[in-house]
Design a protein around this nucleic acid. Structure first.
Lengths: 358, 358
DNA sequence: ATGAAAGCGCTAACAT
DNA sequence: ATGTTAGCGCTTTCAT
């Protein structure tokens, strides 16, 4: 597995473009941004009328409306959201926390979230904790202080206690795993235990017996996928072989190496990203896929289409959409019963899994 | 190239957990969130003292401080950022627009941005236009209305005019490409022309002559990479062969297929994502890499380590860090000269490129 | 159709 | 060390 470093040598070309003194439609030289007051003064009307006009009210005379719009335009007026949220007591914004921007899976879930959220007239504030619990708490706190009207957590590392506190404070839905027993907290997830069993069934169907599992580390999802694997193996009368890995390429790489060195003919890897790492490990060991070793991933991210990797697929965008819908529902009715939506999971057989070699 | 659809059938399990009436430390039943006023009342002091205490001022008597902190805690007080930004006239927030969350390249740039921005005591507001110009404008407008103190555009689809207007309004830096001649607008980019030439030189060095370029479509970056390719080919006395593609896997897939059908022995693909698609096309055509066809990508995203793809690498996180540093600098001094920082670009030779077959 | 006035939750002089 | 006061920029009654 090649790695590389960049020197940070860079040319810094300084051009002679200083900032223009007063570009078209920019705030007048004084530095302060124009406010409603300024627009009103320039249009020769009152603040309230400007406010009405800008909201497109019909009870504003066409003449004043035009004057106001012109004045606003000339001044480069930009409404101040912080001020208006303050007085309206609404932000029309929902906060989204994403565990890890590097995993394309989350981007696909986010697509669904965005679509639904925008459809309901809300906008989103997106933050990430970079998989670091402290940063995560800080960022979510910031969302709360910004008075988002709801929260979608696309995976997280919060304790149940933190989660309960947050859910008590603002409508919240967790995507990716189910957190039972927390009041008011909805969730959208796949069935990870069942999904893992699908993977094993698929490999057993191809004649494999020495099926190893490269785990996803020490977290709830990883545990569930591991449990499903163990159950399925046992049910087929096979001996589970788990090697420790992680939800990352390097986790898959090391795990896969250990697994094949121990004689596995098939790998069920905890997620797609790790499966890509596993493929790299096999390549570096001189093993062919699927002739020598079969590989199955988990998640169903679109990138895998190109990589021809068999995987346990979840309807990612649908999960995001559902989460957003549930959230909007709960914002409308904070007391409605908790919903745990479980999405359909299926095996997507592709080129990385094949019959066991004889 | 396999594709799939999910049914959106899902079980919706409704549990009986209604939202608890009044969880620990939650706002008192009335629904309104507690304010400074409430905390003050409960602690038996004035609003201002609470404000001071919460900011950790030293001029608050320890006794009152404790009482205030206790009251705030009991009430589940959460400061209201919109209110405080309004009066302070500062948000300590910088807005980041990202072109496409699905391309891991942007996540890597973002890592650098986050690191530097947090190091300077700012936080970020992240939005994406999903590569749609209209959504992009809407989202950036929202950032401006939220009064971010600066803007980082990690690729965008804005016109020069829009860009100029935005840059005149708030300190802005563009990452990924250079936009010359816009007052006050800094940029951080690689040298895409030179980078493309590196790719060609590399392939020529391996003996290739029928080197095709799978383009990235109709945008500035794609044009530059294409130009670099054409220059280099001409310089080597070779005939440029460009097939149209896009900065996506499917763009790479179709482009690569056309290119090899036309007899190319090597492909220089416009970016890494497209290169992954190109690899899929070759696989589907029964061609081996690099024995039959060599492939070179562009960007240097980490995922390529695992995929063993040769690429023209840019120091992505460094670019993000630099952008953030430049932005903070300009926030401090809006009139300092414009900077175009150009980062070092290098070829990373890996397993997807090899000697031409004889 | 338009304006005056009150106030959203907070901070920052300015008193005391 | 603590309280009083005056806004920040906006929306929204309520008059006119």
């Amino acid at each position: 597995m090649a790695t590389h470093r960049h020197g940070s040598g860079a040319s810094r070309g300084v051009s002679d473009h200083a900032r223009a003194a007063s570009p078209a439609r920019a705030p007048s030289g004084n530095g302060r941004r124009p406010t409603l007051h300024d627009v009103a003064a320039r249009a020769g009307v009152s603040k309230s009328l400007v406010s009405l006009a800008l909201q497109g009210s019909t009870k504003v005379a066409p003449a004043s409306r035009d004057a106001i719009l012109a004045a606003a335009d000339e001044l480069g007026y930009r409404p101040n959201r912080t001020a208006s949220s303050l007085v309206r007591q609404r932000t029309h914004t929902i906060g989204v926390h994403i565990l890890d921007l590097h995993n394309p899976v989350f981007a696909e879930i986010l697509d669904g979230v965005h679509e639904a959220v925008r459809g309901h007239g809300y906008s989103t504030l997106l933050v990430t904790g970079n998989a670091d619990p402290t940063t995560e708490r800080t960022e979510i706190t910031r969302l709360l202080e910004s008075r988002v009207e709801g929260l979608i957590l696309i995976a997280h590392r919060l304790s149940d206690e933190d989660l309960a506190q947050i859910a008590a404070e603002v409508p919240t839905v967790v995507v990716t795993w189910q957190t039972q027993g927390i009041p008011g907290l909805d969730s959208v997830s796949g069935d990870d235990v069942a999904g893992a069993m699908l993977a094993v069934d698929h490999l057993v169907g191809l004649g494999h017996e020495r099926i190893a599992h490269v785990s996803g580390g020490d977290n709830r999802i990883a545990h569930q996928r591991r449990t499903g694997y163990e159950w399925a193996m046992t049910r087929h009368g096979l001996e589970p072989r788990v090697v420790e890995g992680a939800f990352t390429e390097s986790g898959g790489y090391t795990g896969a190496r250990a697994a094949v060195d121990a004689g596995a003919t098939a790998l069920f890897v905890a997620n797609d990203l790790a499966a890509i790492g596993a493929m790299a490990a096999l390549r570096d060991r001189g093993l062919r896929v699927p002739e020598d070793v079969s590989v199955v991933g988990y998640d169903g991210m679109r990138l895998l289409d190109s990589l021809d990797l068999t995987t346990v697929a979840q309807p990612l965008a649908d999960m995001g959409r559902t989460a957003a819908d549930l959230l909007i529902e709960r914002i409308g009715d904070p007391n409605r019963a908790v919903v745990h939506s479980q999405m359909e999971t299926r095996i997507l057989a592709r080129g990385s899994s094949g019959p066991v070699r004889s």
